[in-house]
Design a protein around this nucleic acid. Sequence first.
DNA 1: ATCTATGCAAAGTTTTTGCAGCACG
DNA 2: CGTGCTGCAAAAACTTTGCATAGAT
Lengths: 198, 198
Amino acid sequence: MSKSPDVSTLTTPAIAAGQGTGGSSETGYAAKHTPSPASEATLNTDKLEEVKKLFTAHLENKGLRKTGERYAILEEIYARSGHFDVDELYAGMKERGLQVSRATVYNTLDLLVEQGLVSKHQFGRNLAQYEKSYGYRQHDHVICTECHKVVEFCDPRIHGIQTMVGDLLNFHILHHSLNLYGICGDCRAQAAARNTHA
Amino acid sequence: MSKSPDVSTLTTPAIAAGQGTGGSSETGYAAKHTPSPASEATLNTDKLEEVKKLFTAHLENKGLRKTGERYAILEEIYARSGHFDVDELYAGMKERGLQVSRATVYNTLDLLVEQGLVSKHQFGRNLAQYEKSYGYRQHDHVICTECHKVVEFCDPRIHGIQTMVGDLLNFHILHHSLNLYGICGDCRAQAAARNTHA
DNA sequence: ATCTATGCAAAGTTTTTGCAGCACG
DNA sequence: CGTGCTGCAAAAACTTTGCATAGAT
C-alpha cells in the first residue's frame, strides 16, 4: 500500500544534490541515490557482518536468545534501501522464502530500534516507517504533503540544538527526528497547471 | 494583552525551563494520558474570537458549511491546554454535554490542521496528538522515552534550516516537526536509585 | 429546496497479545 | 531439559467509510 518514493540526501551547507525537480515521476523505489559521504562506499557485505556482531553483542548483553529469525530480519533490513514499513519487510522476506511471523517482525524491530541499528519514523500517517541506521549518517527528512515523496538532508545545526536543549532541560537526548513538511516542486507545478486550465 | 502561555516553553538562547504534558501509566495502549481538565488558565476569550473568525473565513473560502459542531470542536480545543488525542477531546466534549460524533471530530480536526489552527504530532507511538496553534509560538518537543513526559522548546535555528532546505530542494515548506527523544532527569534519577540498591 | 455534514456503526489498518509447541543455551 | 521465542490467529487501538437524515444556505 504505502510506497517508498525516491530518496536522496542533501547536506545543507553544501550545494544541493542532483535531485533535480525534473524527473521525479513518482517511481517505485528502484532508484536509491544515496550520495557518497566518505563513510559509505563499501557495499553492505562487510557492513552486514559488523551489524550482526553488534546485534549479537546486544542480545548477549540483555540475555536474549540468538535466533535465526532475528538474524534473518536483520539481514533483510540491511539488504533493503530506503524506508519501509512492517508490511513491506514482511512481504519482502516471504518473497525470498524467509518465512517469519509478523509478531516476530515487530518484536525484532523493537529490539533493533532500541539498539539504534534501525530507526523508526512517523511521517504524518499512522504507519510506522523504518530504515537501517548503522554506519549511515544521521539525517532528516522533507516530506511532500501532496505526493508523499521523502527527501533526506543533513544539517549540522541540529546537533547543536540537540545538545543545548538536552543540557538546559536536563534530558539525556538519545536521538531526534526532524521532519519538514511542504509541497515539492513537481506538485506545485501540477497545481499551477491546473490553475491555468481553469 | 492576553498572552499568558499556559504551557511553559523553553527558548534556547534564554533559560526558562518548563514542563508539558505529564506522563502516564505505561502498559502499551491500555491507558491514556490523564485528560487535562481545560477549565483553568486564562480564558482566551478574545483569542477565541479571533480564531473563530479565521475558521469562518476558511470555511467560507472553501465553500464549507458553518455548523455548530465545527465551532463546538474548535472551542473545546482552544479551551484545552497542552496536548490531547482524539479520544480525550471526544470525552471532554461529552463531559460538557457537547455531544459530537467521532467522525465529526476527525473531520473537523483535519480541517483545522489544514488551516494551521491546530497542529498534529506523532510522538513515537501510533497515536495522533493535537494541540492548538494559533497565536502560540511555533515550538518543538523533547519527549522522555521512559515516562513519556513532553517538554516544549523554541530554537530560532530551526527556522533557518527550514528555509535553507526548502530553497535548496525546491520545496515550499509549510511546517516542521522536531522531536528530541531522551531520558529526563527524573527517570535517570530513578534508574540511578535502583542501581544503588543492587 | 438543495445538498452538505452529521451520526452511527461497521469495516479497515496497523499493532499487540495469548497460548501451544519448538529450539536456543 | 527448562524457558524464552516463534507462529498463528484473535483482539485491541485507532481511523475511515457508507448510508440515512438533520440542517445550513
